Amino acid sequence: MDPHRLLIFREVARTESIAAAARRLGWTQPAVSQHLRRLERQAGLPLVVRHSRGIRLTEAGATLLRHADAIATRLHAAEDDMAALADLAAGTVRLAAFPSACATLVPTAMTNLARHRPGLEIRMTQCEPPAATTLVTSGEADLAVLFSHDSRLPDHGPDLQLIPLTDDPVRLVVPTGHPAATAAAPLTCLASTPWIAGCPSCATHLAHTCEAAGFSPDVQHSTDDYVVVQNLVARGLGVALLPQLALDAYHHPDVRALPLATTERALYLLCHREALQIPAVAETVRALQQAATAHRPQTPPAT
């Protein structure tokens, strides 16, 4: 059955008059009568009995009216849902982000969204940039937070949009009291010191940074966990490079973070170009941009 004709029939049934239904619909009376006759042919049964004061429903008409009412209710619910999504009162955004962003930027953004857009739900997945890019490309995530070292843009397909977010300074992390803390060129003091490396991208950045200082790092430990890194450093088992976001998330009291000139990573947001037209995604982008501004260090700490 044509659902449009069911809704016309519903107006006829509720007003008990073809003429009254036509006025409410803004149609002519013959047009409403024609749709009603076609619906009766589709149903195979008469739906109304016409009399001088209007119409009366047949048993088949009363049964069909219940279905027409249900359809109208669902359509109204759909309109309400679409209006809520358009007004950012509801919606789900699937977000992928690397660990230190998941511990800092993402919770800040989620808290602000929960306060101002309580119907907007964020579902977070923690993963490194290559995996996050794959999730966005495959449609399993709507938005990703990525990082890249040494001014290289993260790899992404032509259908994806990369949005610069902020810069995240990279610090040299040594035990408290280490001689490098007072050295004019701290990296050069660490040529023979064991190093701790992170993810593949971070390990490559470590190698390039040390090579620029004139040596190759002796990497004795590898871990993506910045809490583990700092615990190893605190016990004198190595030194490391860590981004400021990781130190914002957790800072061991027995390590010192030293600023390094021109050493940082760039943060980006990644999504399909069309996704920015979805209000919930666009609002999440704005919330992450505000969180990045709030977390941006004002002065390089050396603590």
Rank of each mutant, 00 (worst) to 15 (best):
L146Y: 14
V136S: 01
Q126L: 03
H149T: 07
E128W: 07
T125F: 01
T125D: 04
H149D: 07
R152E: 15
M124K: 10
L135P: 03
L135F: 02
R123K: 09
D150M: 08
E140T: 11
A131V: 10
M124Y: 09
S138V: 08
T134Q: 11
S148Q: 06
A141Q: 00
L143P: 15
S138Q: 13
V136A: 03
F147L: 05
L143K: 01
F147C: 13
S151L: 14
M124W: 03
D150S: 13
S138Y: 03
S138K: 13
T125K: 04
T137Q: 08
D150A: 12
T137C: 14
D142F: 05
P129D: 02
F147H: 10
H149E: 03
T134F: 01
E140L: 10
L135S: 05
S138T: 07
E128K: 02
L146D: 04
S138E: 08
A144V: 12
E128A: 02
R152Y: 10
R123Y: 01
Q126N: 04
C127T: 06
D150F: 12
M124E: 15
S148M: 14
A132T: 01
S148C: 00
F147Q: 10
T137L: 12
A131Y: 07
L135C: 00
T125Q: 10
E128G: 02
A131H: 14
V145S: 15
L135T: 08
F147A: 08
T133L: 01
H149F: 14
T133N: 13
A144S: 11
P129F: 09
P130E: 05
S148V: 09
S148L: 15
T137W: 13
P129W: 00
T133P: 00
E128Y: 03
P130H: 07
G139Q: 02
T137F: 13
R123E: 03
S151G: 12
T134I: 09
E128L: 05
C127Q: 13
E140V: 10
A144I: 06
F147D: 15
T133V: 15
R123C: 11
L143N: 12
A131N: 12
A132N: 00
T133E: 05
A132Q: 04
D142P: 15
H149P: 06
A132P: 01
L143Q: 07
S148I: 14
D150E: 12
P129R: 05
S151K: 07
H149I: 06
R152C: 12
E128T: 02
T125R: 08
L143A: 15
E140Q: 09
R152A: 12
A144C: 10
P129H: 00
Q126F: 00
E140M: 04
S148P: 11
T137Y: 03
S138N: 13
T134M: 03
A144E: 05
